[in-house]
Computed example of a mutant assay.
Amino acid sequence: MNVFACVACGHVDFPRRLLCPSCGHDDFAEVAASTGSVEEVTILHHRAGKAGGDIAYLATVLTHAGPRLIVRLERLLASGAVVSLRLESDGAIVGFSD
């Protein structure tokens, strides 16, 4: 999982922007963001297009690289839990604890 740092001012963001919101520069470097801390969790009891009672857990995660990401959790975790992050082939970001 990567986030993007402006090479001119160091501002880190996700997803990649056309221009840096801090300085307007247009060159970015990829920075690994493999872990983060859960800040908030939302439990979805019904998901559009999904039959049955599948429950999904979404969380705001503050990455160690700086940006906050909305991720799908593999299981319910409390605020403050440290998670590893991976990017799925469908583009979803998943947080899991070891």
Rank of each mutant, 00 (worst) to 15 (best):
L77W: 02
R17H: 11
D27F: 10
V61H: 02
Y57E: 10
L19Y: 13
A48N: 13
V3P: 01
G91I: 08
G95A: 05
A92K: 15
V71C: 00
Y57W: 15
T60H: 15
A59R: 00
P21Y: 06
G10I: 09
L19W: 05
D54E: 12
G66K: 01
I93R: 08
V82E: 14
T60G: 12
A5P: 08
A8K: 09
R68F: 00
A33M: 05
S84M: 12
D98W: 08
S79P: 11
S97T: 14
L44F: 09
C20A: 03
V71N: 00
G10D: 06
V94G: 08
I93G: 03
D13Y: 13
V71Y: 03
L62N: 05
L44N: 14
Y57S: 13
L44R: 10
V3I: 03
R75I: 04
L18V: 11
G53K: 06
H64C: 09
D26I: 15
G53E: 13
L69A: 01
V71L: 06
L76H: 12
V38I: 07
R68N: 02
C9L: 05
T60E: 15
P21H: 07
H64Y: 15
H46Q: 10
G91C: 02
C9T: 10
K50V: 10
F14C: 10
L87P: 01
E40D: 12
A59G: 05
P67V: 08
V71A: 05
I70M: 12
A48G: 11
C23H: 02
L87E: 12
I70R: 02
G49P: 10
R75T: 14
S97F: 07
G24R: 05
F28E: 05
L62E: 09
E30Y: 03
C20K: 01
V82P: 08
A65T: 03
A56N: 09
S97C: 13
L85I: 00
H25T: 09
L85Q: 00
F28A: 02
H11E: 13
H11Q: 13
V41P: 00
V61T: 06
T35Y: 06
D27T: 14
G24Y: 02
L85H: 04
L19A: 08
F96I: 07
I43H: 06
V94Q: 04
T35N: 07
G52K: 04
S97A: 13
G10C: 01
L62I: 11
A8Q: 11
A5M: 08
V38W: 03
S34V: 15
V61E: 07
D54S: 12
K50D: 07
G36M: 01
D98V: 09
A56L: 15
